[in-house]
């Protein structure tokens, strides 16, 4: 897909989550300790814009399409 390393890490985590409501931003932060919240948010925004992920029960939970 031409993802950056950050986008790829975020996408893979979202894709691997099997919860009905998807993965929370808090869980992403815990799993991606070395990544800043700014970078996580940027990656999420890119993935949303490209239609790879979507928000679920609220704006802090995401699943992959």
């Amino acid at each position: 897909y031409g993802f950056t390393a950050n986008q790829n890490q975020v996408f893979n985590l979202i894709k691997s989550c099997s919860l009905a409501e998807g993965i929370s931003v808090q869980n992403l932060r815990t799993a991606l300790k070395y990544m800043s919240l700014y970078d996580i948010r940027n990656s999420l925004q890119f993935l949303i814009n490209e239609g790879h992920i979507f928000s679920t029960v609220d704006e802090n939970h995401f699943k992959a399409t």
Binding site: A20, N49, G51, H52, F54, T56, V57, T65
Partner: peptide, 27 residues
């Protein structure tokens, strides 16, 4: 941790919107 029917409906709606956006980007 079960979702309400309304939450399920919203998730499906958002999923379809994202798929449409994906298709748009690929077009």
């Amino acid at each position: 941790n079960t979702l309400t029917p309304e939450q399920k409906r919203k998730i499906e709606e958002n999923r379809l919107k994202a798929l449409a956006r994906r298709a748009e980007r690929l077009a």
